[in-house]
């Protein structure tokens, strides 16, 4: 199968000459992101662990966003989604995203409710 590869990442900011080069480029990018994650996880800057956004530590938001960034590049460049037809790509990506968002929303809300029941109930859970 002759494949045409789209050889640019970051919306055309970085262009590669060949597919092999692009693969190494993406590896370097993913390694940098992982290094940043691990460094933040070890240092745990106070500014990030003590400020909150929608009830979650800023540091955790950064971890989750960086994870999604990594997931995007793995799916787009390693799994060749960038080279697939738009319809296929959208089918593969948006269906699970919709279902997973729904699942996250409903289960985390429920868990938070149970947490409050445990906390405010007149029963001690530690004895």
């Amino acid at each position: 199968m002759a494949h045409d590869h789209k050889l640019e990442i970051f919306r055309g900011l970085v262009k590669f000459k060949s597919n092999t080069q692009k693969i190494w480029g993406v590896l370097i990018f993913l390694s940098i992101v992982t290094t940043v994650e691990v460094a933040l996880g070890i240092i745990k800057p106070r500014a990030l662990t003590h400020s909150y956004f929608i009830g979650m530590k800023l540091l955790n938001w950064i971890f989750i966003i960086l994870t999604l960034v990594k997931a995007y590049y793995i799916a787009w460049d390693f799994m060749h989604l960038r080279d697939e037809k738009t319809a296929l790509r959208r089918t593969i990506v948006w269906v699970p995203i919709f279902l997973i968002c729904y699942l996250i929303f409903i289960l985390l809300f429920e868990a938070d409710y149970i947490y409050n029941v445990y906390k405010d109930g007149f029963i001690t859970w530690s004895f």
Binding site: I100, L103, I104, L107, L108, A111, I114, Y115
Partner: peptide, 18 residues
């Protein structure tokens, strides 16, 4: 992917609970 999401969200559920 949906199976793994189920597991990870269940983890989140238990974590938020405690």
């Amino acid at each position: 992917a949906l199976t793994f999401s189920g597991f990870l969200v269940a983890y989140g559920f238990s974590r938020f609970k405690f």
